[in-house]
């Protein structure tokens, strides 16, 4: 960890992050002072039992939700305290998303969906990258199809391509295989893995599936809103062991 800090600045870093929902008796501490950083060019998984705060952590890291206290940095930019306009711009330029339920726009074709973030930001697409990404995820012959004409796995591949196309500083993936059968899920995870290896992409993935987590370089574990442990170079077995220990 220390090495990573001195060699290259982390892509994402959170310090003393807390998040409280509700008032008075209904107060829920979703995050209780989380310190974590995610190295550039690394694939990190966030795991934890239901209600551990892993989704909340991701939302706060991605600027979709605002933390109650603490700081979040994406690269050299501090998110905490940014207004909606600046946050939106930051998402446009530095963050990619892959969601559990694909979330493609039904009116757009696969290609249009892939290019959507660039269009929104009014940026020129890197055509070489576009071709490479499309070929990697194997969507070349599906570009003119609309989401309703694609299988779930294909839709999620579109979503992955959409996240990659803008060369974001970090991609947040929220249970990207949650709605997929195991073969499609494995495909998606390989694409994510490949993009980290070949494109140097930084990926932070929330998952509850030990197999999915084993594709990552490192897994961090949350429980009751606190970072409890982490596993480097995980295998499904080590992840499962850790989970079982945490649940106990």
């Amino acid at each position: 960890m220390t090495l990573t800090h001195t060699q290259a600045p982390p892509a994402v870093a959170a310090r003393a992050l807390t998040k409280v929902y509700g008032e008075g008796d209904a107060r829920v501490h979703a995050l209780r002072g989380v310190d974590v950083s995610f190295a550039t060019g690394a694939f990190t998984a966030i795991m934890g039992p239901s209600g551990s705060g892993k989704s909340t952590l991701m939302h706060c890291l991605a600027g979709l939700d605002t933390a109650t206290s603490g700081t979040v940095h994406i690269g050299d930019v501090e998110l905490t305290g940014l207004g909606d306009r600046r946050l939106t711009q930051l998402r446009r330029e530095r963050i990619g998303f892959v969601f559990q339920s694909f979330n493609l726009l039904p009116t757009l074709t696969a290609e249009q969906n892939i290019r959507l973030p660039l269009d929104i930001a009014a940026r020129q697409a890197d055509e070489a990258l576009f071709d490479r990404v499309v070929d990697t995820v194997g969507l070349r012959d599906r570009l003119r199809h609309r989401p309703s004409e694609l299988s779930g796995g294909q839709q999620q591949r579109v979503a992955v391509a959409r996240a990659l196309i803008g060369k974001p500083q970090v991609i947040f993936a929220d249970e990207p295989t949650g709605n997929l059968d195991s073969r499609s899920g494995a495909e998606i995870l390989s694409f994510l893995r490949t993009s980290v290896r070949e494109l140097g992409q930084t990926i932070v993935m929330v998952t509850h599936d030990p197999v999915a987590a084993s594709y990552a370089d490192r897994v961090v574990f949350l429980r009751d809103g606190e970072l409890v442990t982490e596993v480097a170079a995980p295998t499904p077995e080590t992840v499962l062991d850790t989970l079982v220990r945490l649940e106990a």
Partner: peptide, 16 residues
Amino acid sequence: TRESALLRALGLTRSQ
């Protein structure tokens, strides 16, 4: 609602 949220996540501003 969901589509709008997605667009916002992808960087569409409120005014857009």
